[in-house]
Amino acid sequence: MSGDHRQDGGDAHVEALSAITLATHDMPRAVRFYEALGFRMLYGGANEAFTSFALGASYLNLTSETHGPIQFWGRVIIYVSDVDAFYRKAVAHGIEPQFTPRDAPWNERYFHLTDPDGHELSFARPL
């Protein structure tokens, strides 16, 4: 392939499903529910806007939606080999991510995009 191959993120690839994020109107209730099922909390809590539970080698995240009916169903988080290269790959194919890659306080580098049917996908890599 040409020398430009790396610039478009062509070497970046999907590695694993990292997490699924679900929206909730009532974080305390949702946290109690998942704790009752034995899920181990890793981040956040009943009084936080974002909570993450261990789910085997993956994660179940909860995000608080506080206004009106839940408009946001959730998000699938996919681990990739190189977040920035994967971002460049998406852009090179005419896909418009919601923002450029950034580092999160939960120790991941990530960016989001929306598929043609409105499903939010997050591409991430642990820092």
Rank of each mutant, 00 (worst) to 15 (best):
A30Y: 07
S122M: 15
A92N: 03
K89Q: 13
R109K: 09
A36M: 11
D4K: 08
R88P: 03
T24F: 12
P101V: 01
V14R: 09
S52M: 11
R88F: 06
E15C: 01
S18M: 08
S58R: 12
E15Y: 00
V76F: 08
S122Q: 13
V14M: 15
N107V: 00
L127P: 00
I77F: 01
T100N: 00
I78N: 02
F111E: 01
Q71E: 14
P101W: 03
L55M: 15
T24D: 08
F72P: 00
N107M: 03
P116S: 09
Y59N: 10
D103V: 03
D26H: 13
K89R: 15
I78R: 02
V31E: 14
G38C: 11
H25V: 02
S81T: 14
H67L: 05
T24E: 10
F50Q: 01
R88K: 08
S64F: 03
W106H: 06
D8V: 15
I95K: 03
P101C: 06
G68K: 11
A46S: 15
L121I: 14
G10D: 05
L55P: 10
H112R: 06
M27L: 12
A92V: 06
P28N: 11
F99C: 01
A90I: 00
D8E: 14
E108M: 12
V91Q: 12
I77H: 05
T24L: 03
R109D: 01
L62Y: 05
Q7V: 11
D8S: 14
A104Q: 07
L42Q: 11
H93M: 06
D8C: 12
E120M: 12
Y79K: 13
P28H: 08
R102Y: 06
M27Y: 09
D115Q: 13
A104H: 06
S52F: 00
E108L: 06
E96V: 14
Q71C: 04
I77E: 12
T21V: 14
G38L: 11
Y59R: 15
E48K: 12
A16R: 14
F50W: 15
I95H: 13
R88G: 03
G10Y: 01
V14T: 15
S122N: 07
R125E: 03
L62K: 08
R75C: 05
I78W: 00
R29W: 04
D115M: 09
L127H: 01
V14I: 15
H67N: 02
S58D: 07
T51K: 02
T21L: 12
Q71D: 07
D115H: 11
R75E: 15
L127N: 03
T51I: 01
H119M: 10
V91R: 12
I70R: 15
G56P: 05
V91S: 05
H13F: 13
L62I: 07
P101Y: 01
V76H: 11
Y79W: 09
V31G: 08
V31P: 06
T100G: 05
A104W: 02
F50H: 08
L17M: 10
T63R: 06
G44C: 13
P28M: 09
L55T: 07
S2E: 03
E48P: 07
E35R: 11
I20V: 15
H93L: 12
R75P: 00
E120D: 10
D115R: 08
F72H: 13
L37N: 08
D8A: 10
L127K: 01
E120V: 10
R109E: 01
G94Q: 07
I20W: 11
H13D: 13
D103S: 14
R88M: 04
R40I: 14
S52R: 05
N61V: 00
A16G: 03
G3A: 04
